[in-house]
């Protein structure tokens, strides 16, 4: 006996579509809302002089510091991450060691970033006597993004068709010659994209640099060597939002807007780099 009226396939289809559409829309809404609120509230304080000034509240120092941090992080993580990915994708045979490495990667990716910060403090700042500085911060960030870089690079390497490797081996190439001359050049667009996206994440992180690199200074904001502390956008935002009294609301939002713009800019760079490099190489 049917109590409810029969739902026709047409109606169930319409309901399903509406629900799925709303779920998808939920992704767009928060992003849009966030961007709109941020720029509207920060609009009054956003100006060219804000990002080029070294006066109190000026963002030039943290922009320089963030850029330096991101660049150094990329320089440190790229060789290790790509080498590990090459080992996993091209050399390793399935077995206990590989399972162990993969387990380590998954776990590394799951460690909270504040733990990385404490670990970086213990290892780089104190044990290795780097002090709180750019280098210690970049090393800590490199650890944080290492699993992302390995995973992205391995994915890019696996995209290179097997038949190209076979062609190379059949011509008498060793594994390394094949990697260097065929696999790596063809995987490079994907690797570079993955690297930029990964370090883009580092640009927005606060916890890992909290104890290892960041400081808030009104007098001497620019690092002169790898062993100087740096101002970083995310840390500046953290400080002015929580610790410094009487900061104008607009300035906080403007700082947040600049940080988000920097991260989105890096993501855009990754997309452009991929498109450019893809056009040059195809198979």
């Amino acid at each position: 006996m049917r109590v409810l009226p029969r739902v026709t396939p047409r109606i169930s289809q319409a309901i399903a579509f509406a629900l799925l559409w709303m779920a998808a829309l939920m992704v767009i809404l928060p992003v849009t809302a966030l961007l709109v609120v941020m720029f509207v509230k920060g609009r009054g304080s956003l100006s060219w002089s804000l990002v080029t000034s070294t006066e109190a509240g000026g963002l030039l120092a943290p922009i320089v510091g963030t850029t330096a941090l991101v660049t150094l992080t990329a320089v440190i993580v790229a060789p290790v991450g790509v080498a590990a990915a090459i080992y996993l994708s091209e050399y390793a045979r399935a077995g206990r060691l590989v399972r162990l490495i993969r387990l380590a990667i998954v776990n590394l990716a799951g460690v909270p970033s504040v733990v990385y910060g404490l670990f970086g403090l213990a290892l780089f700042v104190m044990l290795l006597h780097f002090g709180r500085c750019l280098l210690a911060g970049a090393c800590t960030m490199a650890l944080l993004v290492l699993p992302l870089v390995i995973t992205a690079a391995e994915e890019a390497l696996r995209q290179v068709p097997r038949r190209l490797r076979e062609a190379s081996f059949a011509l008498g190439a060793t594994r390394w010659q094949t990697v260097r001359r065929v696999v790596l050049p063809n995987a490079l667009p994907g690797i570079i994209t993955g690297l930029i996206l990964s370090v883009g994440r580092a640009a927005g992180e606060t916890a890992p640099i909290l104890f290892t690199a960041a400081f808030y200074s009104l007098t001497d904001p620019f690092p002169k060597s790898l062993f100087d502390p740096i101002e970083v956008l995310s840390y500046r935002l953290f400080v002015i939002a929580t610790e410094v009294p009487r900061i104008e609301e607009g300035e906080k939002w403007a700082t947040a807007a600049v940080l988000v713009a920097l991260v989105l800019g890096l993501n855009a760079l990754a997309v452009i780099a991929r498109a450019r490099l893809r056009r040059a190489r195809r198979w």
Binding site: R163, L164, E166, A167, A170, L171, V182, N186, W283
Partner: peptide
């Protein structure tokens, strides 16, 4: 030397 089923020139 070996020639494969599908042509496989390097890019």
């Amino acid at each position: 030397g070996m020639v494969f089923q599908t042509p496989n020139p390097f890019p």
